[in-house]
Structure formats: C-alpha cells, structure tokens
C-alpha cells in the first residue's frame, strides 16, 4: 500500500517536472530566437538603413513596400471580412452560414504558398508579370478569413439586449448593426484587425511570385514591388557577409514590428476588453 502510494507520487513528480521542462524549453527557444535577432539585428542596424534603398544597401524601399502591400490588403480585406462576419453572425442562419464559417476556418490555415500560386494564375500570368497588386491581393486573401473569424466571435459577445433595444427604438437592422453593435464590439474588432495586419505583414510565401521584390524605390504597384520578407530570403541566401547583415537587420525590424503590434493588440484587450 505504501509502496504504490510512493510510486504514484514519484510518477507524478516526474511527469510534472517533464511538463515544466517542456514549458521552459518553449521559452528557451523564444528567447534564443529573440536574443539572436537582437544581437545580430542591432549590430547591423544603422540609421542609414532607413534613408537608403536596397540598391544602396538600405532597407527604406522594402519597409515601405511591405507596409504598403499589407495596408492595401487590409483596406481590401477588412470591409469584405467584416461584412462576411456580420452576415454570419447577424443574418446567416442554418446550414449555409455554417458551411461558410467552416470554409473560412479552413482557408485561415490553408498553405500560403498555394494562395500565392492561385494569385499567380489569376493576377500575374494574365497580366504579363509580377506586380504589387497581385501581392496585395494574395495578402488580402490571407487576411479575410482572420477578419471573418474575429468579427464573428466579437459580435457574438455583444449582448442580445442591445440588438433588441435598437430594434425597439425603431432602427432598421442594418442601422442597429452599424451604429450599435459594431460600436459595442469596437475594441475587439480593432484588436482583431491589428493582429490580422501583423500576421500578413510577416508573410513571405504568398509574395514570392506575386509581388516579387524590387531593389529600387517604387510606388508603382503595376510592377515588381519591394518586399521586405522576400528580400530577406534573397539576402540570407547571398554569400556575402554584408548581405547577411542586412538580412538580419531586416529580420530584426520585421520581428519588432510584428511583436509590437501583437503586444499592442493584447494590451488593448486587457485594458478595455
């Protein structure tokens, strides 16, 4: 009796220790990656990177290009995603809405490179070459399902009484949605959009053969468009130290952008949500 008791306790201790160790391991990887990035990135970081284009050894055009494409993706994707989310939560009932919801969830995890291939087939091949619009559209396709799911979830948190009160005041359904429900869910929606933006700005695979990248300053979305992530891939595979340093600096900036946006999102939620 005492022996089994002891064994149970020992097994318990071992398993708990193992599980704590795995949590530690996860944290070690996070800090390992972050510390590497900080050391390598800060070392290579220089103010001139923000004033010169890639062709002169800077990153200005790349940062601008990446932001631009993520921004256009957001402008295209957020209204469509929010409307779809509104439909699913407020109008959709029954089978159709459920199917769309499931498909949207599947699309959220679909391989990004396949979305790149699709956009290539539709927006690159017929137009004779890689272009910034195609890159933005690829990112928008990645972004829409995230916004749909956020909108769907956030609207489900708005109490039904608000809807009833709005209708009782004589508002039509779309007015109630636009003026009451969306306002009530504002904080959650903003956070969701921020996180979606953070997700797509770090994407590489859908941009590889849609926008490509460009060493020069460009605002012309009809041609190869500068992309920070695609250039990181190119630079990291370049054999010179200078190119690698630049890749590290770019990776550092990208990670800082993504993590800061994520932290802001979490902070907003904790503060007000």
């Amino acid at each position: 009796m005492k022996g089994t008791e002891k064994r149970r306790l020992i097994i318990n201790k071992i398993i708990l220790a193992l599980s704590t160790i795995s949590a530690l391991l996860g944290l070690i990887f996070l800090f390992w990656i972050l510390i590497t990035l900080f050391l390598k990135g800060l070392n290579a970081l220089d103010f001139s990177l923000f004033t010169k284009d890639l062709v002169d050894g800077g990153l200005r055009n790349l940062i601008f290009g990446q932001f631009m494409m993520a921004l256009i993706a957001t402008i295209i994707g957020v209204p469509l995603g929010m409307l779809a989310g509104i439909y699913l939560r407020e109008y959709g009932s029954g089978k159709y809405a459920n199917i769309i919801r499931d498909l949207s969830d599947i699309m959220m995890s679909a391989p990004s490179i396949v979305i790149g291939a699709f956009v290539f087939a539709v927006f690159v091949a017929p137009f004779g070459g890689i272009n910034g619009w195609a890159g933005s559209i690829a990112l928008a396709i990645m972004l829409i399902p995230i916004v749909v799911s956020t909108t769907d979830n956030m609207l489900s948190l708005v109490p039904i009484e608000l809807r009833e009160a709005g209708i009782a005041l004589g508002g039509s359904k779309h007015k109630v949605i636009l003026q009451i429900i969306l306002k009530a869910a504002k904080v959650g929606l903003m956070t969701g959009i921020l996180l979606a933006f953070a997700r797509v700005i770090g994407e590489t695979a859908p941009l590889l053969f849609t926008s490509g990248t460009n060493s020069f300053w460009s605002t012309d979305l009809g041609n190869a468009f500068p992309s920070l992530t695609v250039s990181i891939y190119d630079l990291a595979n370049f054999p010179t130290d200078k190119a690698r340093d630049l890749a590290w600096a770019a990776s550092f900036l990208l990670t800082v952008i993504v993590l800061v946006i994520n932290l802001i999102g979490r902070f907003i939620i904790r503060d007000k949500g």
Binding site: G26, F29, L30, I33, L37, A198, R199, G202, E203, T204, A205, T229, I232, Y233, S251, L254, T255, V258, L259, N262
Partner: peptide, 8 residues
C-alpha cells in the same frame, strides 16, 4: 512565439 514570421 506563434506570431513570429516563419521566415525568421
């Protein structure tokens, strides 16, 4: 850790 872009 999940939010870090895969290229990193």
């Amino acid at each position: 850790l999940a939010a870090i872009p895969s290229i990193i």
